[in-house]
Design a protein around this nucleic acid. Structure first.
Lengths: 356, 356
DNA sequence: CTGAAAGCGCTTACAG
DNA sequence: CTGAAAGCGCTTACAG
């Protein structure tokens, strides 16, 4: 099957003649019989304006449909209420939800929100510079290598906050940043599987955001730490991507190994792929193998078996990141950045006691 | 379980003293021994500049790390290369994918991309006006009531393009817009189910974007048309939301009815909920009931049973919408807006011949 | 409480 | 090929 797409251009008549230029502060002043200066006072809510004058100006403003020119305001005042988000992805659940939190907080604060996607092809420094040219601050989503690399290249004079993976233990990033304790969450998820009677837990990793090509992220570290604390040698982690296809491929290999009875995945997409591979291999979940995901994407509760996973407050991370930037951008502003919810293991059908 | 979140502020030392103000066009002029006028010519690539002069200016530019102030440029030239997207949602697959297409196209064209979420609480006119204040154009995602309402309120003088549901047959929207032929796609999906031997097809709807509260969208129309063409009376459509929970609730009712053997859903999230409800009711898919979704979200191929669905080129719609706006904003620009791919039925495991 | 001046950093004609 | 002037629409001191 295939069906036609449509496009339609135009339709709306061009403005009759001479596009009715927008009213300026001077037009308003003339209409109200005051100087444009006074108009500026009124629109900025300055106190020293006679009530009668203020009223006249307000009337002229509504009569002319005046709106202050944002560009001129920015140039004259040096104030730019805007944030631009730098991210390598907008579709994966963790990124999209973080973006949503950023948008929400920026809207609440009266800030404009820009988005620029980072690609391996584009020059990072150029992208950062042009984003910084917008005038406001930057928020970098550093969940992956590209984002983390961008973070390191942001010039010191550019206001910037970041949402990142949990940094290496004992370290902390060189600029305002927020993160969830993925390491601890992964440890808790692994301990849960161990407590269910599984001899070991296998891990299907998301790509790490930092370190050498072979290195693993905080989720993998937490998983490893839990195994080691239990005196279990950690098996080699697998996984080479973010999506379900990558999970499926890793799952195919794990499914061959009858000793595999518990699998932790770096995100829910990977987990779905693993679930699918186990299904194709005829291994039942959770009777034969337990699977736990990460992130709690919206559909994870509705697949069958429903997915045990770690709920992450990405929206909260986004809101907090905006708050950190806001505090730096607007020193008047006192409200501290909100604290995101802690990761929480959500038990559903895909995990259970080891059988046999 | 629950784990600690972290935040870290500061870290980077404040600039030693006096924040090294950014170099201006005049600083460059002085360094190069020319007037700032000539600098303007060089950065704008004007032809009439002596090669030697151009070189000196370029050197000064790199030496001082000069970047043209985007705000001043916009104010002086009247050119604002920016688009802001108005949408009620950023997380649902259709919206997020459309947004991705818009971002991609805007980036390719050197445009800045802003995002503003529409909420029922905020005043639509104010939101539109402040988005328009950004100076560039607007793109409205009109998949739902809120977006469609915003579309109607965009003042005629604001450059705007839209991506919408297929408009009522024979009509077309009053401004540049792009849409996929959802109606025809739904018809084809329904015909497919009928051809599989099902007596009728039930429909779980997404909320309509226009019309009276009870009215249905183009997907529902296509479904109804296919049934009527086959001489089948269309059953009452169900569904009252966009997400899997809404699908689950609709699915619970349909699952009670043993005559229900085929269900078309307004999107994949709904379909997942329906699948879940059928599972809970002990009805097998596709043996007892066939289910078809809409949109082909990334995970739909990996759930079990994998979901038969209609693939939609949301990214293409986004790219096209940007192209329409671009053509209006920049009359120099000749490249026509790209044409999105047609919707296509993707056959997977959740649909099959009627058994009995 | 209100007005006249200078300036934000750039561009667009206009001269030479 | 290059410079001096005026202006984009607003704000920030400075006067009164």
């Amino acid at each position: 099957m295939s069906v036609t797409g449509h496009t339609r251009s135009g339709g709306r008549a061009e403005p009759p003649q001479g596009q009715q230029k927008a009213a300026s502060i001077r037009d308003v002043a003339q209409a109200a019989g005051v100087s444009y200066q006074t108009v500026s006072r009124v629109i900025n809510g300055h106190p020293n304006v006679r009530e009668e004058t203020r009223r006249r100006v307000q009337e002229a403003i509504t009569a002319l449909g005046f709106r202050r020119n944002a560009t001129a305001f920015a140039l004259a005042s040096g104030v730019t209420r805007s944030v631009t988000v730098l991210t390598s992805n907008t579709l994966l659940y963790g990124y999209a939800a973080t973006l949503q939190g950023l948008e929400e907080a920026s809207r609440a604060a009266g800030y404009t929100l820009g988005v620029r996607v980072l690609t391996p092809e584009d020059d990072l420094d150029r992208t950062i510079a042009s984003a910084a040219d917008a005038g406001g601050g930057l928020v970098v989503i550093g969940f992956d290598r590209l984002g983390a690399a961008a973070l390191e290249r942001v010039p010191a004079h550019v206001p910037c906050a970041a949402v990142v993976e949990a940094p290496p233990q004992g370290q902390s990033p060189g600029l305002p940043a927020v993160w969830a304790d993925d390491r601890e969450a992964a440890r808790a998820a692994t301990e849960h599987l161990l407590a269910l009677g599984h001899d070991t837990v296998h891990y299907v990793a998301i790509p790490a955001s930092t370190g050498t090509p072979g290195s693993v992220g905080p989720r993998a570290e937490g998983w490893r730490q839990a195994l080691e604390a239990a005196g279990v040698t950690a098996p080699e982690p697998s996984g080479k991507g973010w999506d379900s296809q990558a999970g499926y491929e890793a799952g195919q290999k794990l499914a061959q190994n009858q000793n595999v009875t518990a699998i932790l995945c770096g995100n829910d997409d990977l987990a779905l792929g693993v679930l699918r591979a186990l299904h194709h291999a005829g291994r039942r979940v959770p009777e034969d193998v337990s699977v736990i995901g990460f992130d709690d994407a919206p559909h994870s509760a509705f697949v069958t078996p429903s997915l045990t996973t770690v709920r992450m407050d990405f929206q909260g991370l986004g809101r907090t990141a905006f708050g950190l930037l806001h505090a730096r951008l607007d020193t008047e502003q006192q409200a501290p950045a909100p604290v995101p919810a802690k990761p929480a293991l959500v038990l559903r059908e895909s995990s259970g006691s080891r059988e046999t």
